[in-house]
Design a protein around this nucleic acid. Structure first.
Lengths: 256, 256
DNA sequence: GTCAATTCGTGTACGTCGTACATTCTATGT
DNA sequence: ACATAGAATGTACGACGTACACGAATTGAC
């Protein structure tokens, strides 16, 4: 966090004076030539898509827009947190929900979760950043509402629906976060191929760890490092996602 | 990330020259009077316990140890990433695993997951930081190995075991991360009581949103903001954790 | 069409972070 | 007792987010 000198002013004022969420503040009227929230958010998304959350810098966004200083952006997005809020909402807009839940609750939720997962694969920064802000953008609310309505339509009360909502949402975001971390690691060590990954992991796992303290993990690692027998590497990421989702929905189904 | 000038030297050298993980590098011999990895990691954990991951600063750790500059730490932990690795491993040491998996796979996993969850509640920074590093400290490996052995003992091959391992681990860490984010938000707005949280959320949800676009979510929010009917707030965090774990294990059980 | 007033972009600067480099201090081996 | 190696420190750099104030450009009134 950067310099903030407003702490004592807030405290002296008496009211915590929380800034309202950026969605409620109207965008300044877009002058003919100037910037606009749309361009800024689009540029920020492109930067984060290409370089991950750690590449998302006010300076980088400003540079991409041709603005020589980052201060130009602050009129439109108020702060970096505001920009992140707008980015998260823009990503949320990419996952569609039907107008009303259908008769097949499980199919509805599977479709929603799969779309959510696909979005998170397109935007690996999403899972990293979504946990840094209160999750209540318009599209986040729409998605939550749809899940709640799905359970409501099947006779679950609001408390139960909330529990299941948190379960499903937590699962999708958890899976996305694991994947995002993997992507980040690839980028951090600028890996281009799986062979480079193996090369890197070799020095790091310790070639000599034969059947040391972790025989099963070691067997997996040796397989991974040497011949890459796809049978032993476990399911690929999409199959793994479906497996977990199916397990979770099985458990929920047993309780409805 | 700070200044790094070694990029082109690495590239020129030909080999990526990845630094080996800190667990493999021996700790410098502890002189009578000097620092030691133990003290440093303990101090860092205390700071992060109290102030979250964002309070974890090399300067803060050095200050807590009475060292006037952060540079003293670098001989022992090499970098902040190294320190984080050691912290994660120290936290991993707090979750115990039996020597061998027992006959009751489900009980074993429930116990393990519950201990993991308890550890993550003690150290809210754990979930935030664990996704920033390759997950292969000694204790992380021990835990993974135990889960793999549990499934191995029940006739699952390594690939299937890996899939279930990722599922269970992902679930626990996902739940811990959601909780960590909540803790962080409380700290960030220095909330002391639930009433302050409600006060904050009121301005932020928009008091006037009566039965707008999100009737169910709105009902929950209004309940939360006004009278706090515990029936409508959904399960508490421990019950929620158990619910998800049970659902997941149900799903796994159906596939064994 | 002209001028004043408003609004927007920009330059500069501050305080934070991680950490490289050079220096000083301390404890140890002889 | 002294030389020397190793550990702690001071200083400094380049990144970050962003506050502040100034100049430039656009808009509205006449």
């Amino acid at each position: 966090m950067g310099a903030r000198g407003s702490k004592e002013r807030d405290a002296a004022k008496g009211s915590p004076k929380t800034p309202p969420p950026i969605w409620l503040l109207p965008e300044p009227p877009e002058r003919k030539w100037g910037l606009g929230r749309g361009e800024i958010v689009r540029a920020a998304v492109e930067i984060a898509d290409a370089g991950g959350a750690e590449a998302l810098t006010m300076r980088a966004v400003a540079a991409k827009l041709g603005s020589s200083t980052p201060m130009s952006l602050y009129r439109y997005v108020h702060s970096k947190e505001g920009l992140v809020d707008l980015m998260l909402d823009a990503a949320g807009a990419e996952v569609a929900t039907p107008a009303h839940p259908g008769a097949d609750w499980r199919g509805d939720l599977e479709r929603l979760a799969t779309e959510y997962w696909a979005m998170a694969k397109r935007h690996p920064w999403f899972a990293e950043l979504v946990h840094s802000r209160p999750p209540a953008g318009p599209h986040a609310c729409r998605i939550k509402e749809f899940v709640l309505a799905t359970f409501d339509r099947h006779g679950q009360d609001l408390a139960a629906g909330l529990g299941y909502l948190r379960l499903v949402e937590g699962y999708v975001l958890g899976a996305a976060l694991q994947r995002a971390e993997e992507v980040k690691m690839w980028r951090h060590n600028d890996f281009g191929s799986a062979e480079q990954v193996r090369e890197h992991a070799r020095g790091w796992w310790g070639e000599g760890t034969e059947d040391g303290p972790y025989p099963l993990l070691g067997r997996f690692m040796r397989t991974f490092l040497r011949d890459e027998d796809p049978e032993l590497l476990g399911p690929d990421e999409d199959a793994q996602f479906r497996l977990g989702l199916d397990c979770l929905l099985d458990g929920i189904a047993a309780r409805l």
